[in-house]
Design a protein around this nucleic acid. Structure first.
Lengths: 148, 148
DNA sequence: ATTCCTGCAAAAACTTTGCACCATG
DNA sequence: CATGGTGCAAAGTTTTTGCAGGAAT
């Protein structure tokens, strides 16, 4: 498994004099295989154990922290009380990240449209703030819940 | 202190057969007095103790949970590792909530513009999802950090 | 009076740290 | 072989819960 993201990861580690270990690769692998799944630490741990059975929870925490610092994963709080992580989606300058969260059933829909340019323009003009990334959460009622 | 928000709170409690206590009023009071301040539980606790010195931390947790359920306060994760709360800003149908977070100094600027109508329109058309509220976080570089 | 709340302390859940051993570069 | 990483267990944090006494309706 040698996708672009894995290569980027190895490259970043090398640059910083850090080591490429099976555990680190496994954690990244799990996150890659569950893109858009918003995993909790415990869920990541459970899934990683199938790839690296001997891994300790502490290593999962340490690796997630590392991946966060490298901007390869994003922390997420979907207001269900859990802190979640998912692999970053902003390769090559894109930075879209919209979640549609149903207030009734809690379902999370991933939206990909990027219509925020206008707002970013306003941030720049009005607040002199240069936007480099954004996270948007829309709360509402999903189609299934509307039907009921 | 009998603002609109306090009255709304008392009304909601009454409706649900819950009781109006000094502790609950104090917690709401603190959040009202620090609108836009993004307080952690510990900060709320410290400030509430000046109003209700005998209050316990457990009661602060319980009250915040209650206020969350009543949609009077919003949970916030500004990616500095702390979970924060602030009083809700969507009285009377408004639901704006944009944070500009500087990736260098961590400063949080509150933006009030609401230019998201287009996006909400798209959510409705494309995903059949009715948006009732949104939380938007823009990461970027603030003016002070740009100058350096 | 009845029901709900509170403070306290204990428990549970979550996250970080120290250390001896191991693996990578 | 030097440096950094790992697993484990212990320590630190944060949050929740049980319970007996107290307050609100």
């Amino acid at each position: 498994m040698s996708s672009i993201k894995c290569d980027a990861f190895k490259e970043l580690l090398k640059q910083k004099g850090l080591k490429i270990t099976a555990q680190r690769e496994s954690v990244l692998e799990v996150l890659k295989n569950h893109e858009g799944n918003h995993l909790t630490v415990e869920e990541i741990y459970e899934k990683v154990k199938t790839l690296s059975p001997e891994i300790g929870l502490a290593t999962v925490y340490r690796t997630i922290q590392l991946l966060s610092e490298l901007k390869l994963v994003d922390k997420l709080e979907l207001n269900d009380g859990f802190i979640r992580y998912e692999i970053g989606k902003f390769d090559g300058g894109k930075h879209n990240h919209h979640h549609l969260i149903c207030e009734i059933c809690g379902r999370v829909i991933e939206a990909e449209d990027d219509l925020l340019d206008l707002i970013e323009e306003t941030c720049r003009k009005k607040y002199d703030f240069k936007v480099t990334n954004h996270v948007v959460k829309f709360y509402g009622i999903c189609n299934k819940c509307s039907e009921k």
